[in-house]
Amino acid sequence: MGKKTQHCLLLFLCLSGLVHYSAALVFWTSMVEITYVNSSNATVDKYCECGVYGRNSPLEQASGIATLPRGDPKGCGSDPVYNPNSSHLTWIALVKRGNCTFSEKINAAYRQGAAAVVVYNVDGSGNSTSHMAHSDATEIPAIMIGNSQGMEVVNLVKNGTVVELTITVGSPHGPWMDTYWLYFLSIAFFIVTAASISYFVFISASRLYSLNMHRRTERKLKSEATKAIRRLQVRKLKTGDEETKSDSDMCAVCLESYKAGELVTVLTCEHIFHKACIEPWLLERRTCPMCKCDILKALGVEEETKESLSAESPLEVTVITVTGGEPMYEVPLTDPASPDPERLQHRYDNRAFEGDSAAGRR
């Protein structure tokens, strides 16, 4: 399995876990309808999406007469807590938040026959609500509304007004509304971002290292190509030489015919080119333009270069004799500027190349 496939699989598993966890934190709002007859004998009907179903509440519709707990408005304590009006078949407990758990409030109302429970928030909280948890009370619908809406109904009921409450399921909302989920998303974002940055830094560093190694190898090979060029035979063409007799004999680099007095270089494959044309070519490509013969491999320099790069050590003073009949060239592999005393004992047979190098240095 490739790295990209593994990364995609890991990302899919993470996203699957996040989606599953997100679904568990989705909450539902509640539509709340308040209906009563005012002092002018007119029916007042108010409707708003101002409630929130509890985490463990069944998503069901409920309606009934608003009923307050006796004594303590928070609905805590032993039964009986409520005294519902027997003339009404269904009633909904309207209880204030605080003192005991949500589960205790809901169960107390459920045991006395409430159809649902509406919890209004504490004083000073305005119309804010929270996603209440009540894992021990899951039998009847339970919602929370703001303190302002709750106190409005409480005051009506205390004044003897019969208030009918109807709660219906509203719309779902995502986990981004949950504070803890927001913290989790922030931490996850920073972790993923840090991991991504680290990964790209690692990839960039690896590529930069590879690029530097490639450039180093190229410089080394170019240096070795320079040494290999010094071993090649250089001739000065004369009148009557085979190369000057026919216009069909021409340099494959510049496509010009050979003329008497020109310097030509003979490669190991016996192909001939203008010295000024072939040397820049060999420095960049290190192969014959016609037959692609590798001059480094032909002269045995390529193997020595690989050994020196792997061992990370300087080349030793070595004399190579190009065979194939009588020895033609004997040169050291060390840098010409090296102060090694053994280096001074050898000299180049390729005088023409030495002359060009010296002129370039000047």
Rank of each mutant, 00 (worst) to 15 (best):
N121P: 00
P58N: 07
L267R: 04
S198Q: 07
L10N: 03
A298N: 09
K3N: 03
S103G: 00
C14T: 03
M328V: 15
G325S: 07
D335L: 11
Y47T: 08
K220P: 00
R230S: 13
T29H: 05
L59A: 03
V26D: 00
F184S: 13
F12M: 11
S198Y: 15
S313G: 03
R347D: 09
V157C: 02
I92V: 14
T268P: 10
G146T: 00
L299W: 02
W91E: 06
V162I: 02
Y258A: 02
E304M: 11
K74V: 04
G150V: 06
S30F: 02
Y183V: 15
S22I: 01
H274A: 04
G146N: 06
K306R: 13
P336H: 05
C291Q: 11
G124P: 06
V37D: 06
E302F: 10
G240D: 11
S78G: 10
V52M: 13
Q345M: 10
I320V: 13
Q61N: 13
V319R: 01
H173P: 05
V118E: 07
D340E: 15
E164Y: 09
A194P: 01
W181V: 14
R215W: 12
R215H: 15
Y53N: 14
V253A: 08
G150C: 05
Y348C: 03
T239A: 15
P73A: 07
K292D: 06
A142D: 03
V317A: 08
L315C: 09
A188F: 04
K3F: 05
A337H: 15
E262N: 09
K96N: 09
V32E: 02
A188I: 11
R97C: 04
E304V: 15
G75W: 10
A66K: 01
T305F: 02
C277A: 06
A359Q: 09
F190Q: 07
S125P: 00
E139Y: 01
E256L: 02
K245M: 09
V162H: 06
C100G: 13
D356P: 02
Q61S: 11
F27K: 10
G160H: 00
G71A: 12
G98M: 08
F12Y: 03
L221W: 12
P84M: 01
I187S: 08
K227D: 07
L309F: 08
F12L: 14
D249L: 11
